[in-house]
Every structure is written in structure tokens, then in C-alpha cells.
Design a protein around this nucleic acid. Structure first.
Length: 840
RNA sequence: GGGGAUAUGGCGGAAUUGGUAGACGCGCUAGCUUCAGAAGCUAGUAAACUUAUGUUUGUGGAGGUUCAAGUCCUCUUAUCCCCACCA
């Protein structure tokens, strides 16, 4: 498709039209030329100490893989690049940073297979990206490039671990963790998707398992409330804000102790409906709880053990897919603190270890799941709420307070609301309950049994236990090794790096060993935006004053990582704020969750399917980066998914070509001047374009910004047929047009800007201003509707008053005809727009 | 099961927030140019009817509010996304 067109393009005959003598648009020539000039002049290097107002726009940084740049990257980084360029042209000190999220599993897996170390593959792969990023025309500041796998960077990732530790936000715990047999590593909950590892989720991949592992945790739950509450004020895509709220999953309720009969044990439960406590007819523990063994009686031991084992073998998917309730009785009873009733204690897999306390008070009279369980096992069901008479359905929906408690002794007749307060008071008096807020979000497990990450700065001493590496000894450099396979005992390949492993305890100076776990790579990406403010600092993580000047990130975008990454980054920012490094607890002022690009059939692009579109191929074929960029930004609103249209890039190319040719024709036009009439037309067209493009880029409506530039180009084409000459207004019009498309097509714009006589670049301080006075015209079109239907359009002068307008309407022959022998009941005038007449 | 979003020509999508539906682009049609193709330029392109000025219908479906509804309200259908035995 492309090749037919382009082979022709290449040997285009210079005989058509009158462009024979003028330069033709050839991206293959001008794009590398300008990329070299930008490189030499360093024009995209931001002066962080500048007095200009600052602006920083960035997309989520890239994981460098052998596959190189794909069309999804082209989408993401062009979005932030357009924003950065727009602001740069507007006179901001605009910073479009670049970096590499270069730690992580793919490079390590590749190393295991190939024997090529991750350090080496990064050294090979990253320079390739440099070329590709430049070929796309992205205005990155290469002087401040960072990569998370360099000791200069991960020294500070380790430093963050130490600071969090010193502030009581790090702890070690043994947990049953998801374990990926293929990667030989534990996984965070969010890395388990449909029961499989997020990196191994195809049909033939194994399901994840649970394994007990000692791990380090960050106490992100300490910040749960703050993180939740401040979501409201963020200028972020709504879907992402919602995902964050759900992820944190706050619920307000109570924690209640149930004593176990004939035992010193008690069962703590979390409930949001303590008002139903009179309806509790049994307790359920998650099978994994330690308490289960203690509460199981001799007679039930075998049955319980069998059930627990069966549950362990079940995957999360199996547990969730079967709605049929299963469970066994432990043989023990608990005492309901509100009325002293004995209630049987069961275990069942519908209660999850990880949520709340892992135990529930079951109220089959109120909860559907408990109801099904009770039905199946013949347990009592007590109804504890009754309804008042309702006159309509809406009342039931809107007013829970109309439900009254029943079967609840002294609380009978109270509404839910009152019952909640009074029942809780009574339980609190007995000291068996307290208000409790529960979160779905758990603490952040940061240990990974992998090689290719930042080593955890901990030394395990047989005498002193885990001891922090002293700050002066940072970074704990990842040793270069040759066998990257996990040690197989659950530890990373680092366990075999014996020289590196043995070390003296900083505390007692006895023999000790380094921690062999590395840090979750999400930590690397949770603070990188701040390192951009001071990427070469060896003394501190970053200059706090610079960070305070440049925070927050004004514009951030990405098509993935809507929950984990953004939540972790917000957590770290809050911590940085607490320790005084920065002032703003929110790292990203604006976040755009942009759509992805798929193949024409709506399926994801993938190498294996062979349906990929290579951005560089399109550039090299002759359409150029400018046309590709313009198409990607024009195809749809940024938050929608785009289906790749093979005709899209040629279409964008055609538009750029029109702008190019128009400029060339102007440059070759003769002396002359324009009539006032034509001047009004040109001014109106150009100034409304400037207004629309300015507002639309600001509001992330790139597609309509580009269409406004197209409309103006079309207008100018119509005018130029008869009125093209060297009048200064033509110069001004073309400069405005070129400047307005520069964020999308920066190479061509710089070339044309030069043709138009500028020695400076269009990419700085060139944004045109519009003047409202050109947008108003002295006539207006008034639409006349009769009974809601458009029947006439009148061209009237703007100064005319309402009476005169109606007069003009009535004089219109067509309207006259329609009103004949009808009675005019109502007339409405919407200023400057329309007249609506109602007749009978 | 819960929550959210979307639905407009042959296609991607516009629509000043209740005021001329279909901007802009793709595709298609015709004309010019060309040996020819491609590119370029000009014009047309929601549907049906009409010689024509025009008329009627039309924003997933059914109702409603209004002088006026793609936009607001009620119900409904389909698609997509997120969360999911969350106590």
C-alpha cells in the first residue's frame, strides 16, 4: 500500500502545476537535517534555573527491550511531546525529560536464555532507542537522561528504602505469597491476573501458587486515607481516579471480638453491618488462619485438615469461579457478645485470609453468601430487619432508615442508623468492639527473588538480625555475574555471588551476609520524576530547592499502570513531603490516561501475530515522522482507542504537503497588496484558527486542534487562487499557520519558518496570539424556525435590535407564505443565532 | 454480582453545553491536468422523494420535558473497560 505510492513519490515528475521550480516537501531530507541541528544546538535542553515560568510534560518512561520502538510508544510520547513543544513555543521553560525503566524481568530472562548479561543488553539496546526517539522528533532533554539500572540512580532507590526504614515504614514479615514457578519469584497481588503471572498469562503457562516467604514491606496503608481523600482534587482521567479509589477500597465498620467457648482464644471479625449482630448464627474462618488448628476439636481434625489442604491446592480462580459454598465445622463454638448465644465455628474458602481479619460473623438473614451457606448446611437463619410499609419503590431504594431492626431484643424497632450507634455503644461498653476502618489495599511487598533489580540495602547478621547498610556505603552495587538462573531455593542468583555475599555486620563487625533479594521495580518508577530535576547529583537524591521549583509534573500520560504505579508514586511523594524534600504531596498535577492503538481489526498489535506496524518503517518509507505524528494525534480524541488506518498517514502527509506548497507559492508570488475585503477574510480565518488551536492543545483536544489548522489551510487555498501576493498579511498568516502546526510537525515547521525568513527556530517563543476583533464580523446569519423547523436563513447586520430582526423576518417572502392564514402564538429570539416562531 | 464508559454517514470522528446534526480527515464520484498510472488542483458526497426552489426522515431502541433534544429525564438494548465471595 505504502510502497506503491512512495515509489512513485520518489520519482515524482517535476512538471505538474507551477511547482516545477519550487522546492517540494521531502521529509526524508528535512527531518534528519533538523534533528541534527536540534542536537547540535541543544535547543531542547531545559535550563532548570531559568527565570521563565516552568512546564514539565512527560509520558511514563520506557522499558527498553530488544524489540525497539513500537507504534504504542509513538502514540504515548508524541502526546507529551506536543504538549511540551506547545508550552515551549508559548515561552515556558519547557522540559520533556527522558529515561529508562531498565531494571526488570525481561532483561534477566533474556540473560538466562542467552548468557548476555542484562548490563550488556541494556548497553546494546538503549543507544538504539536514542536513534529512534530522535527519528520521531521528540524534543527530549538528552543531557538529563536517566536509567534506573545505573548505580548512580539505584543508589538513591536504596536510600529511599533506608529512609523509609528509619521512619518506621518498612518491616519484614513472613507471608504466604503468590509464587510464579516460571520466574521463580514472588508476585505482588496486582501482578497476578486471572490466577496467572502477569508475564506468563497465556494458556500454556502455569497458575500461580502460594508459598511462604520472608519479605520486606512498605507500610503504604499508613497513607491509605490521605491517598484516598486527595484523589478528589486531582486533574486526572476519571476512570483512573475511580480505579484508585477501588484499589484502596476503604470500608468503615467495626471490629468485634467473639470469645471461643471453653477456651482462651477469641475471634476478631471485621464487619460493616454490626447492627445485624443478633442475626449471627455461625462464624466462618478462612482456612489459612493459624487459629483454625487451635479451634479444631479431635473429632473434626481429619475433616478440617483435608479441607485446608484442598483449599491450598485450589487456585484463586477456582475458588472464585465456583459459587457453590463449601466448608467444614471445626467442632468449636463462639459466644455472641451481645446475647451470650453459642454459635458454631466453621471454616470455608469463601472467606478470604487477606481481607479484614480473615474471619467473619455470618448473618444468613442479611448476607446473601451467608444465606447460601446456611441453607446448604442447615444452619439457623434469623431475620433481623423488617420493612415498613412503602407507598412506592423509590422510597425503599433511597431510604434505608425505613428498615427497622427486628429480633434484636431491646433494639427492636430502631432504624438501621440508630441501631448501628446503640448496638456499637453496648459492645464498646463490654470492651469487645471498636470502630474500625478497613482497606482492601495491603502493604506493599517489595522483595523480589531476582537478580536484575536494586539490591536491598540490608545485611543479615546472625547476632544482630537484619541491619541497614550505612548510608555512606551506598550504593550496594549489583555484582556482575555469569549465571542468572535463580538459585532455586527461593533466592536470587545473587546467592551464588559469594564474594559479594559475605560482608561484616556494620553493627557488631562479625561475619554476616547481604540480603539477596532485590527491590520491586515499581520502586524505581515511583520516584524517577524527581530525579529528572537533578539527575547527576552524587551528594543527595536531588536538590530539594530545584525540586520545589519544578514540582509537580504538569502533564503526565500513559496507557497502562493506572493503579499500582500511580499509587506507589503518590505514596513516595507523600513520604518525600513528610521528610521535607518536596512541598507538594501530589507528584502529577494532570494525568491523561490515553488510549492504545490497535490493528485495523481491533486486535492488539503483536509480533507473534505478525500484524505490527513499525513507526520507523513508515518514517523511512518517505512519509516522515511529522506525518506519522500528525496522524496519530488527529485520528481520535486522546483517551479513545485508535484502530490503525493504513490511509491515515498518507492523509496527514497530504495536509502537510498542502501547507508546504502554499508557503512555496507565496515565496514565489509577485509584489502586491490585498484589498480590505480579502484582509478581513484572511484575518478571520487565521485568528479563529489560533484561538481554537491554542485552546484545544491546552485542553488535550489535539484532534480538533489539527482540524482547525486544516480548515484554515483550506480557507487560504481558496483565497490564494486569486489573491496571492507579497502583502505582509500573507506572511503573517503563513507564520501563524506554521507555528500552530509546529507541535505536531516540528521538522517541516522549522524548515518553513526558515523559508519565511527567520533565523531562529519556530520551536521556541513563537506562539501566535489571536485578536478577538478579527473574530467578530459585521453581519450575522439568523436562522428562522417555524414550529421547530428551519425555514429560512437571513443575513443581517450585527448592530440591529430585536424589533428590527423580527421585522426583517416577517418581510421574508418564504416566512410570510408559511405564516399566511396561521395564528402566531409565540416568538423567541436567541441573540445572534435564531428566531423561533410558533404558529397554529 | 458491583461500578464505570460508550453508541452519530461506507469509515475515524465534530457539534460553541438545549439553538442550522455530520466540522476535519479517510474513502468514493465527476471535472481539470497527464501518453498512462500515481500525485496535484476544483467540485460533490446522511437517506428517500423531487426538473427545481424544495419536502420528508434521520444521532442504538421506546417514551417524556421543551418553541427547540445527539445534548436533559424515565425505561430498554448492545458493546467495551475496571473491580469482583471485600464481610
Amino acid at each position: 500500500m505504502f510502497s506503491t505510492f512512495l515509489s512513485n513519490l520518489a520519482d515524482i515528475k517535476l512538471i505538474t502545476y507551477n511547482i516545477s521550480i519550487m522546492k517540494r516537501y521531502n521529509p526524508k531530507e528535512i527531518e534528519p537535517k533538523w534533528q541534527a541541528i536540534w542536537d547540535e544546538t541543544n535547543i531542547y535542553s531545559a535550563d532548570l534555573n531559568s527565570n521563565k515560568p516552568k512546564y514539565i510534560a512527560m509520558s511514563m518512561f520506557n522499558y527498553p527491550s530488544g524489540a525497539g520502538l513500537h507504534i504504542g510508544h509513538a502514540m504515548n510520547y508524541t502526546i507529551s511531546d506536543v504538549k511540551a513543544r506547545f508550552k515551549r513555543q508559548q515561552g515556558f521553560e519547557s522540559y520533556h525529560p527522558v529515561g529508562w525503566d531498565s531494571f526488570g524481568l525481561p532483561a534477566e530472562n533474556f540473560a538466562i536464555k542467552s548468557g548476555i548479561s542484562p548490563q550488556e543488553s541494556m548497553a546494546r539496546v538503549i543507544p538504539g532507542y536514542h536513534k529512534q526517539y530522535k527519528a520521531m522528533g521528540w524534543s527530549n532533554d538528552w543531557e538529563k537522561e536517566i536509567a534506573t539500572h545505573t548505580p548512580e540512580y539505584y543508589k538513591w532507590t536504596q536510600w529511599i528504602f533506608i529512609e523509609l526504614f528509619k521512619n518506621g515504614l518498612v518491616y519484614q514479615d513472613s507471608r504466604m505469597q503468590w509464587w510464579c514457578e516460571k520466574d521463580k519469584t514472588v508476585l505482588a497481588n496486582e501482578q497476578v491476573i486471572d490466577g496467572k503471572c502477569w508475564r506468563h498469562d497465556s494458556a500454556e503457562d502455569p497458575l500461580v501458587e502460594k508459598k511462604e516467604v520472608k519479605q520486606w514491606f512498605f507500610k503504604i496503608t499508613d497513607y491509605a486515607d490521605e491517598l484516598l481523600e486527595s484523589i478528589d482534587d486531582l486533574d486526572w482521567s476519571e476512570s483512573v481516579k475511580l480505579a484508585q479509589r477501588n484499589w484502596i477500597g476503604k470500608s468503615v465498620g467495626a471490629e468485634i471480638d467473639f470469645k471461643v467457648k471453653d477456651s482462651n482464644e477469641s475471634i476478631k471479625v471485621f464487619t460493616t453491618a454490626h447492627d445485624t449482630i443478633y442475626g449471627v448464627t455461625f462464624m466462618v474462618l478462612a482456612p489459612e488462619l493459624e487459629l483454625v488448628t487451635k479451634l479444631t476439636t479431635k473429632e473434626n481434625e481429619q475433616m478440617v485438615q483435608d479441607y485446608v489442604r484442598a483449599t491450598e491446592r485450589k487456585t484463586e480462580v477456582e475458588r472464585q469461579s465456583s459459587k457453590e459454598k463449601t466448608g467444614v465445622f471445626t467442632g468449636s463454638y463462639a459466644i455472641n457478645p451481645i446475647n451470650g448465644k453459642e454459635i458454631p465455628i466453621w471454616i470455608a474458602d469463601y472467606v478470604l485470609e487477606g481481607y479484614g481479619t480473615g474471619a467473619i460473623m455470618a448473618v444468613p438473614g442479611a448476607d446473601e453468601r451467608d444465606y447460601h451457606f446456611a441453607k446448604k448446611f442447615g444452619i439457623d437463619i434469623i431475620k433481623v430487619t423488617g420493612e415498613e410499609e412503602f407507598t412506592n419503590y423509590a422510597d425503599i431504594k433511597t431510604s434505608l432508615s425505613k428498615f427497622k431492626l427486628i429480633n434484636s431484643d431491646e433494639f427492636n424497632g430502631l432504624s438501621f442508623k440508630e441501631g448501628r450507634l446503640k448496638i456499637l455503644d453496648k459492645l464498646k461498653e463490654q470492651k469487645v468492639a471498636k470502630e474500625k476502618v478497613n482497606y482492601r489495599m495491603l502493604d506493599w511487598s517489595v522483595s523480589r527473588q531476582r537478580y536484575w533489580g536494586a539490591p536491598i540495602p540490608i545485611i543479615n547478621c546472625p547476632k544482630c538480625g537484619p541491619v541497614l547498610v550505612p548510608e555512606a556505603d551506598l550504593p550496594v552495587v549489583l555484582p556482575e555475574i555469569s549465571d542468572f538462573q535463580s538459585s532455586g531455593d527461593g533466592r536470587s542468583a545473587l546467592a551464588r555471588a559469594t564474594d559479594w555475599l559475605s560482608v561484616k555486620c556494620p553493627n557488631c563487625h562479625g561475619d554476616a551476609e547481604r540480603e539477596t533479594d532485590t527491590l520491586d521495580t515499581y520502586i524505581d518508577s515511583s520516584w524517577y520524576m524527581y530525579r529528572y530535576f537533578d539527575p547527576r547529583n552524587q551528594q543527595v537524591i536531588f536538590d530539594s530547592n530545584l525540586a520545589k521549583k519544578w514540582e509537580p509534573i504538569d502533564f503526565y500520560n500513559g496507557a497502562d499502570h493506572a493503579t499500582a504505579h500511580l499509587l506507589y508514586a503518590r505514596f513516595i511523594a507523600r513520604f518525600f513531603t513528610k521528610i521535607g524534600l518536596i512541598n507538594d504531596p501530589e507528584p502529577f498535577k494532570q494525568f491523561l490516561f490515553n488510549g492504545k492503538i490497535t490493528a485495523s481489526d481491533g486486535k492488539m498489535f503483536s509480533k507473534s501475530k505478525g500484524n505490527g506496524v513499525d513507526p520507523l518503517e513508515i518514517i523511512n518509507e518517505g512519509y516522515g515522522a511529522d506525518a506519522l505524528r500528525t496522524y496519530l494525534m488527529f485520528a481520535a480524541p486522546l483517551d479513545l482507542w485508535v484502530k490503525w488506518d493504513p490511509q491515515g498517514v498518507p492523509g496527514a502527509y497530504r495536509f502537510l504537503n498542502r501547507v508546504w506548497n502554499l508557503t512555496q507559492e507565496y515565496l514565489e508570488s509577485g509584489e502586491g497588496s490585498l484589498s480590505d475585503d480579502v484582509k478581513i477574510q484572511i484575518n478571520k480565518s487565521i485568528h479563529s484558527m489560533i484561538k481554537k488551536v491554542t485552546e484545544d492543545i491546552e485542553a488535550n483536544r489535539y484532534n480538533t486542534a489539527i482540524s482547525a489548522a486544516m480548515t484554515a489551510t483550506n480557507d487560504l487555498y481558496k483565497i490564494k487562487i486569486k489573491h496571492l501576493n507579497k502583502d505582509p498579511l500573507w506572511q503573517e498568516a503563513l507564520e501563524s499557520l506554521v507555528a500552530c502546526i509546529a507541535p505536531f510537525a516540528p521538522h517541516m515547521s522549522d524548515e518553513l519558518w526558515q523559508h519565511l525568513g527567520h533565523s531562529s527556530t519556530v520551536n521556541k517563543d513563537s506562539w501566535p496570539k489571536y485578536d478577538e476583533k478579527y473574530l467578530v464580523s459585521d453581519s450575522m446569519e439568523i436562522v428562522v424556525q417555524v414550529n421547530g423547523k428551519v425555514r429560512a436563513k437571513l443575513e443581517l447586520s450585527t448592530g440591529i435590535n430585536e424589533d428590527k430582526i423580527f421585522e426583517a423576518v416577517m418581510q421574508n417572502p418564504r416566512i410570510n407564505e408559511l405564516l399566511a392564514s396561521k395564528e402566531l402564538i409565540k416568538k423567541i429570539y436567541i441573540p445572534g443565532k435564531l428566531v423561533s416562531l410558533v404558529v397554529k
